[in-house]
Simulated assay, not measured.
Amino acid sequence: MISLISIFLVFLLLIQDLLLWILLKYHFQDYSKPIEEGSWPRISVLIPARNEAQYLPQCLKALEKLRYPPEKIEFIIGNDESTDQTEAIIKAWAGKEHNRVYVNVSPQKGNLMNGKANALVQLIQVAEGELFLFTDADCEVNPEWAREMVRAFTPEKGMVIGISRVKAKSFWERWQGMDWWLTLSMVKVASDLGQSLTGVGNNMLVSKEAYNSVGGFEALPFSVTEDFELGRAIWAKGYRPVHQVSLLSLALTKAENNVLDLLRQRKRWTQGAMGLPWFWKMALVMQLLFFPAIIYLVFQNFTFGLLLWAIKIFLQMNLMQYYAQKTKTRLPFIPLLFFEVYYAVISWSTIVYYFWPSKIKWKERNY
């Protein structure tokens, strides 16, 4: 009986990965459409920063290179109670141009929102754009980012999700990036099928109209994944967000430095994933249950089990490689081949840590 259940779970996962690859390959949607040069809408780029002095200079330097009409873009950067040099860096940068705005984020009264949502609310209060573009202070956007996100937007969408790549040199960092490619490939497939799964707070466009229609972050249930809650609320209002995957919509983000920081990040993300529809939660559960099932089969019949595992790795490698190539990124073969080891360990470690009786620590705050 255990063998039959294991075989069923393994084949179910193989079919899932095969379908994901087929849909990604043959149903991939590019939402970018040309816009006449004089027709660019006014946009607000919003970045909250809390103790980001290490990464903020690279982020701001990247913003300076954005190709967008200067009179149609504003940058609103918020200092969220930082204790390092973040405030000084933002003030110095904001003082150089008239379309750069510094906001000193005030602590909220009570715990209605997480810290980032509270900061974003205050940034949005002074924003004048028709469209809000969100990224993080530890990210670097490319010069065409704003234009590409706007080109992918139409009013009925309400939200456009971009694509992020982890800046990586070591195997540890590369594996985090591959994990991100795998997750976002599922988001892309769902988006192209007309199903929105989430928002992605480090690379996202939201129209002012869609944001106001849900009452803003203040009106959303408390969550440590405010981007997910916003995306879900916008979907419930009848908008149909999309995932624009291209080299031009790409932003670079940093990897987590160690296992504990990664598990804290994944615990927060897992809590957000609990709000997904049941069938998507089942798809994630299948990814998780594959490992005990395949290990059992390997012990029962080494050759047969190893063959099935090799097929899964092959399908997964092709899925991630094809998805990454949409942004002109090629994943290195050796880290990609051994990604399965990392994925198994981190997936199950995340589950254990998720149920561990500890608070979620994020940006020096506990939730």
Rank of each mutant, 00 (worst) to 15 (best):
1 M>H: 05
5 I>T: 10
9 L>Q: 03
25 K>Q: 15
29 Q>A: 03
30 D>T: 11
32 S>I: 09
36 E>R: 11
36 E>D: 04
39 S>C: 11
48 P>E: 03
52 E>A: 00
57 P>E: 08
64 E>W: 02
68 Y>E: 02
78 G>H: 08
80 D>Q: 12
82 S>M: 10
91 K>P: 00
97 E>R: 13
97 E>C: 00
98 H>M: 01
102 Y>Q: 01
102 Y>N: 01
105 V>E: 02
106 S>D: 11
109 K>N: 08
110 G>I: 03
111 N>F: 09
116 K>Q: 11
122 Q>Y: 14
123 L>V: 03
125 Q>K: 12
126 V>K: 13
129 G>Y: 10
137 A>T: 01
142 N>C: 05
143 P>T: 01
146 A>E: 07
155 P>W: 09
158 G>S: 09
162 G>P: 02
165 R>S: 12
167 K>S: 08
169 K>H: 15
175 W>C: 01
180 W>L: 06
180 W>F: 05
183 T>F: 14
186 M>E: 12
188 K>G: 04
190 A>E: 13
195 Q>Y: 12
196 S>R: 12
198 T>Y: 15
202 N>G: 03
208 K>D: 07
210 A>Q: 11
211 Y>D: 01
212 N>W: 14
213 S>T: 13
221 P>H: 10
222 F>A: 00
235 W>G: 06
251 A>T: 09
252 L>A: 12
256 E>N: 07
257 N>Y: 13
258 N>I: 10
261 D>H: 14
263 L>W: 14
268 R>A: 10
277 P>F: 03
279 F>L: 14
283 A>I: 08
286 M>R: 13
290 F>E: 00
293 A>L: 10
306 L>G: 14
316 Q>L: 07
316 Q>G: 13
316 Q>I: 07
322 Y>R: 10
324 A>E: 00
327 T>P: 01
332 P>Y: 02
332 P>G: 04
332 P>C: 05
334 I>A: 06
336 L>M: 01
337 L>Y: 14
339 F>L: 05
340 E>C: 05
345 V>P: 02
349 S>E: 03
355 F>T: 14
355 F>C: 09
359 K>Y: 12
359 K>D: 13
361 K>P: 02
